[in-house]
Design a protein around this nucleic acid. Structure first.
Lengths: 222, 222
DNA sequence: CCGTACTGGATAGCACTGGTATCCATAAGG
DNA sequence: CCTTATGGATACCAGTGCTATCCAGTACGG
């Protein structure tokens, strides 16, 4: 049951055999245990790893190359959870640059972090990414005001607290790091989707007439 | 100064001429005003449109095809801001599916919306997207609990409020819709980046010794 | 008013990503 | 023992986002 060959692995994960072979080639999935010149057996860990890879690429939007480097790092040596987590997080792409921020954008990024008293590493890619995003808004003709930025920053602190609580809640074991990656990467998508749903509600509350809302509420409850 | 040919447009937007021609072909950028059989002039609106397209693709991560359909919709007829905004938002991709959620995932998605009293459209893609994200977490071996989901949902309401405030703050004019798109699309990236920065802070607070934090604080202030 | 440079526009090609398809010698299994 | 499946290597393929080439026609410095 927990030992299988490639056909069953494919069947159970819902991933075609050629794709599995591709992931093996690319090192996203460890090779099965060789039981002969051309025979290998895969276990439950291969199945879960395969599902993990799929979730990270399809839902999380990570590229195959990113998944490889991130999971390599996760399985790496490790000199303490906090620092290892930091290393892994640096691997996650934030923006597909191609926009060069101005000094002012970088300055605003640093100022924001300072205003909120956030701990930071001066050379962290997230800081540069923030500058890029600010530049993007500006270039798009819709700059972000410091006031809006501060409101977002305040709201985002709630997320970070939830995120870390979730991490602390994980059973002290081997895959805390993997959990952190999944919760961060898929969490980005989750937050995006939830934000859209909340926008719909907020927009409806502000723009629809009361009777229209009531009708819809009744329709839902009825 | 505000009338130019392609070379100047390219220069000022920092986008190569062949790329501009490509965007023209793909309909992301309207053709310039023809002044002869093979001569056209571009204005300030082309420049800003070009920068907008670039920001949406590079920072927002939208595909060229998505940018086209979204901007087409923005420039379309329109029967009231609220409903038109709704139409545009439906065009924005949320997840690159490929994972089929189970009924239970869809059920949890609906329950979440109900628990929070959110207004919703039963067939809205965001609802299905939420189910997909829940399925992704589950398949990745790290399911999201309802408790965590509720915490996220609560936090996300703050975003929606900020988002709508920002929209209301826009000058009642032609590009409210464009503003909504930019603020939503680039806002996703902005929130992702801010979340990462806040995570770093929260993680440091929980995992670094007090003296290490103080040293770093002094380094920053000094 | 002429030669060179540049234009808009069309068509073809290219690098990269994420797979598929094919082939092969070998093992499994009824 | 003969069909089928396997692991592994190599080749191929479709989609995306450009980039290069070509062309007839215009601009413009000298």
């Amino acid at each position: 049951m927990s030992v299988m060959r490639i056909a069953e692995l494919s069947e159970r994960a819902g991933v075609p055999i050629p794709t599995i072979k591709y992931y093996l080639r690319e090192g996203l999935l460890p090779r099965g245990e060789a039981t002969g010149r051309n025979q290998a057996s895969y276990g439950a860990e291969h199945l879960s790893r395969l599902r993990l890879v799929r979730a990270l690429t399809t839902v999380g939007g990570l590229s195959v190359a990113t998944v490889r480097t991130v999971l390599d790092e996760v399985g790496g040596p490790g000199v303490g959870l906090h620092s290892q987590l930091g290393l892994v997080m640096r691997r996650l792409p934030l923006v597909g640059a191609d926009i060069e921020p101005q000094d002012r954008d970088r300055e605003r990024a640093r100022e924001l972090v300072a205003r909120h008293g956030w701990f930071f590493y001066p050379d962290h890619p997230a800081l540069e990414a923030l500058a890029v995003v600010l530049a993007g808004h500006r270039e798009a003709g819709h700059p972000v005001s410091d006031a809006d930025l501060d409101r977002y920053a305040g709201a985002v602190e709630a997320f970070a607290e939830i995120d870390l609580d979730r991490l602390d809640g994980l059973p002290e074991g081997e895959d805390v790091l993997e959990g952190a990656v999944v919760k961060t990467v898929l969490g980005d998508t989750l937050i995006t989707v939830l934000r859209r749903l909340a926008q719909i509600d907020e927009s409806a509350q502000r723009n629809l007439g009361e009777d229209e809302r009531r009708a819809r509420r009744e329709m839902r409850e009825g």
